[in-house]
Design a protein around this nucleic acid. Sequence first.
DNA 1: GCCGTTTTCGGCCCGACTGTTTTCAGTCG
Length: 607
Amino acid sequence: MSNAAIARALSEIASMMELLGEDSFRVLAHSRAARAVEDFPGDIASIARGATGAADLRKIEGLGPKTAEKIVELVTTGAIAEHAELAAKVPAGLLQLLQLQGIGPKTVRVFWTQAGVTSLADLHRIIADGSILKLPRMGEKSVEKLKAAISMLSESTKRHRLGPATVLAEAVIAHLKARAKIERIEAAGSLRRGRETVGDLDILVATADPAGVVQAFVTMPGVTAVLQSGETRASCRVRLSAGEAVTDDGEAPIKDAGEDSGPSMQVDVKVVPLESWGAALMYFTGSKDFNVALRGRAQDRGLTLNEYGLFPEDHEKTPPQARHVRPLAGKTEESICEALGVAWVPPEIREGRGELDVKGTPRLIELGDIQAELHSHTTASDGVLSIVELAKEAKRRGFHTLAITDHSQSSVIANGLKPDRLRRHIRAIHAAREEVKGITLLAGSEVDILPDGRLDYDDELLAELDVVVASPHAALKQEPKAATERLIRAVSHPLVHILGHPTGRLIMRRAGLEPDMAEVIAAAKAHGTALEINAHWMRLDLRDVHVRMAVEAGCAIAINCDVHHPADFGNLRFGVTTGRRGWLRAEACVNTWSAKDLHEWLKKKRR
DNA sequence: GCCGTTTTCGGCCCGACTGTTTTCAGTCG
């Protein structure tokens, strides 16, 4: 049973208790437990099945005696009795109503207990016959908002992948900068933390002209609905196509239908005072758990931290900023951390997982550290550039090394190379070295890992290559056990340098392989094989939690753009961000090494 | 239901916005 499935069960318990009007802190505890399970890097089910399952689970922050027992119950019996008892009391359709924007548990409970609503269809009915207006706090405007929320139910609950979300955020920032006088502007939230998917965008602005900023935002092209618009914040749904020519699939540009169609995202613009910039940025960047931990540190010191700054705790009812109390810190994130006696940590690792205990700011990998691209495709397989064009582009971007790694024979759809074609291709790469100087061109291959873990070329041919990236492309639904054996066999092969996109997942589209990653990492470490973070925003594979496992195990990491098109080099930042989320330091990433060190490492597997 | 170098009991983030109110409840992040 996957962590996600266990988290869902706990989360449903929380929602159902909420609808029954039970103690809100019990609800909160179950929601927290669900998140703890969802975000846990290891396999919760196998821990729960252990002899001391419940005790081991309790060591995870957010899980206590009761929630640990419920997880053990779920894993061993397939269900939680309490879940079934709650489900008998709460109609299933109500959970869907909770997804509606602007509708929370209190309102759903009113619909249910006072109007007998148990489904979306019932809700439609009381709207249609007007009886909804008899319910408390339900006026014309509320009903209009509710109708809008129903019509975009599926769209508004959808998360979006990091790539398109980043592009849209940059477009909003550019738009506001061009139309209002702005002191500072930055995207906060999960985008700043570099999560692989983003629910909505939080754009923070420091400005002398709040009204101008809000006005510029709500009239921006691509805005399909203004959800709220006040003096210091506004919320809109904005079409992703307002970003630029990056669609959800990373292919052709979205055709602008000129109406409220196409995928959209909620974008919140918040105006904050310049003297509170750091406090607001920190507050709105999160994560929630990180903020809670940080506020705990403030409390320990008799201080209170909010989005306006760090203040002395004086137990007054009115918040300090409203009484014009001078904050102890707030203009920058660093000043707040200093006043709290904690090291400033990069947004990517703010997860409330003990990062406040680190001594000194960790020096994580940065975009500028990358000096080599080790995974690229030419027109020989499914790329759009020739060897020379690709080499020139890599050189232009300042890389000292480029590995050409076209697909192997089993990837028929990608025009994979049969052995004789590969041999000619190797010679063509060698010839291109004469044409493009100032960059080392390596002859490689992205070799398919067959379902049983064998490679797609024989060892003799593999030994002729400078670089071997072994990747799974087919049979991505095989059982975890088979997947684990398959990948271990591949990383243990003496001629393999890098395990490419280890799981083959596509974010929000395809789960990919679900091997026991700890075992794969251990085998990779033992054989000196690097694990790839594929930088494409559709993949980001290895994923962040597995990067952290690999980093802690001392395994080498590669960050590659898997270049098929010149624009793919631009995805590098997403790969680096994912590395940072896994606490990756430059020295553990082979792409940051000097040409000498990198080439030496590659050759070691050829002796 | 969880958690603890100010607590094993008594806390559990809090401010902006909105719509419906006659001073505030609900939602959101």
